[in-house]
Design a protein around this nucleic acid. Structure first.
Lengths: 137, 137
DNA sequence: TCCTACTCTGGACTTTGTCCAAGTCAAACA
DNA sequence: TGTTTGACTTGGACAAAGTCCAGAGTAGGA
């Protein structure tokens, strides 16, 4: 059984066939699927699952903190089940491949007080862009 | 005349009333408008300008490197005419206010080789999120 | 002034996501 | 095990952001 599913179950989440399928589709490392990709894979296992349910379920997983929303491109949001280890993303500008990466310093520490304009900063999102080995010329 | 317009003109861009208006609307510091906001302001000066033209024109400015696309939220892209000084963005999670900020180190230097997976990295995008002084409780 | 290639327009279309009323079902309880 | 109930799911309508295209318009060079 998937880690994600296990975590959700122990939190008292009401279990349904639909939620189980979404959690299973989303489980793993370096998984960054869009909602429609999740839906397409979920349909393979449970043909009648609706788009609305996939959206609802993903939204709930995000609220519970078990899945992170990622916006690496300007199109659809992606869903990353690796929510419990802080990390950033490296994206191939050509093929769109995404890797989880871990910078050596907390990016927050590089923003001086004079550049904070009185904001209380709680979060940083870093996206590195480049060309992956497969797409390199 | 606006800086942006001046730069575009000297690059041999064919000048039309529509392009002039878009460039004028977009000029300035800490400007981060969506395409629809640009369109709304452009219509004030040139009532017949179409949405398609605004999208096309913004897209061309981005291709020319005179304007940068910013995705601070997961909704519409925003357009930042401050393309010639590298900077990152600080966003209020409540009201959406956006400030240009300048970290003390190049964020690229914090990604060790072992975390690059053979990618040739060319760009980093950092978004700091928090609560601005106006929205603070 | 005339030409021509480049630009603009409006509307149809696509993608991504949200909302809702009605039907269905998991789980608690007797 | 059967009942009950509130939570979950469905499908379709809707909305926001953006793209595409054929035909009309025009900037700028000859």
């Amino acid at each position: 059984m998937s880690d994600l599913l296990e975590r959700l179950r122990t939190r008292g989440w009401r279990m349904t066939a639909q939620r189980r399928v979404v959690a299973e589709v989303l489980d793993g490392d370096h998984v960054h699927l869009t909602a429609d990709e999740v839906h397409a894979r979920a349909v393979d296992r449970l043909p009648e699952i609706s788009r609305a349910t996939v959206y609802n379920t993903l939204g709930e997983m995000v609220s519970l903190g078990e899945v992170v929303e990622v916006s690496t491109d300007r199109r659809a949001k992606r869903y990353d089940p690796n929510a419990h280890r802080p990390h950033q993303h490296l994206v191939c500008a050509k093929c769109g491949a995404i890797r989880d990466v871990h910078p050596s310093r907390n990016p927050l520490s590089d923003l001086p007080d004079t550049e904070r304009f009185g904001f209380t900063i709680s979060d940083v999102e870093v996206t590195y862009r480049g060309i992956c080995p497969n797409c390199a010329p």
